[in-house]
């Protein structure tokens, strides 16, 4: 990493990377400002604690003790400390786990800012929405193995199901669409769902619905998210594993 051997040149490497471990903890009676001053001395840098805390949106807690900070504020301090040495690569291990949506979004903003500064950010997360929103490249790891990798869009396109348009309508509407469009329209619980094969399909389907003269309301289009892909991929792998277990004599 960065031309250094992590096992034998760990000290040199630590000076060029920033890490916020999962469930970051710090000295309870120490303030964010003091914590950054401490790290600044250890790393021999000249970072201004106020600037750094402003960057992670924690400047209002400059002199608050660690044990009075909320979960999100503690994670922000962890981020600030990981940035004290102006790292080229940041490793953020589940930095938003357990945080409320507001705190999570605040951390996302910091990560976006890091990206803009040209730093490489390694983010591990169980929130696929987070990965989809923030990452340029995603690797889905299951049982210690990468089972899919690429940009979020590439992974969804490769492993996800096609987009669908859904309207509220009757089985007769589904039958009409199947007959007139030749597409796989399905009715279930009063919802008619049609697969979208390309961009023009949506207009064609809506026109056909209107022409049918049958009653319908509220249409939506949906497509697989990274989370859908994750659930499907992992489910398939676990199913495959179970089958191969069962096949054993």
């Amino acid at each position: 990493m960065l031309g250094l051997d992590p096992w034998n040149q760990g000290d040199a490497l630590h000076r060029r990377i920033g890490v916020i471990p999962q469930d970051f903890r710090f000295f309870e009676k120490i303030t964010p400002k003091e914590a950054i001053e401490y790290y600044r001395t250890l790393f021999h840098t000249h970072v201004d604690p106020v600037d750094l805390l402003r960057k992670v949106e924690l400047s209002d807690k400059l002199n608050a003790r660690y044990d009075t900070l909320s979960g999100g504020q503690k994670q922000k301090l962890g981020l600030a400390l990981a940035l004290t040495n102006d790292p080229e690569i940041c490793f953020l291990d589940e930095p938003t786990t357990g945080l409320d949506p507001h705190a999570r979004r605040a951390i996302w903003e910091v990560i976006r800012a890091l990206k803009k500064e040209g730093r490489t950010v390694f983010l591990t997360t169980h929130y696929l929405e987070e990965a989809e929103l923030l990452a340029d490249r995603v690797a889905i790891i299951h049982n210690g193995r990468i089972i899919a990798a690429g940009s979020p869009l590439e992974i969804i396109q490769e492993h996800g199901q096609p987009a669908r348009m859904t309207v509220e309508g009757s089985p007769a509407l589904a039958a009409y669409l199947r007959m007139n469009l030749g597409s796989a329209a399905v009715e279930e619980d009063g919802k008619v769902s049609v697969t979208l094969r390309d961009k023009g399909d949506a207009l064609k389907i809506l026109t056909a619905i209107e022409e049918s003269g049958l009653p319908w309301t509220s249409f939506t289009t949906t497509h697989d998210t990274l989370e859908d892909v994750f659930v499907r991929l992992v489910g398939q792998m676990d199913e495959g594993a179970l089958k191969s277990e069962g096949a054993k004599p």
Partner: peptide, 13 residues
């Protein structure tokens, strides 16, 4: 137990 040592291990201390 609290991970403070792990945190310090990431510094040059």
């Amino acid at each position: 137990k609290d991970g403070i040592f792990r945190e310090l291990s990431l510094t040059p201390l």
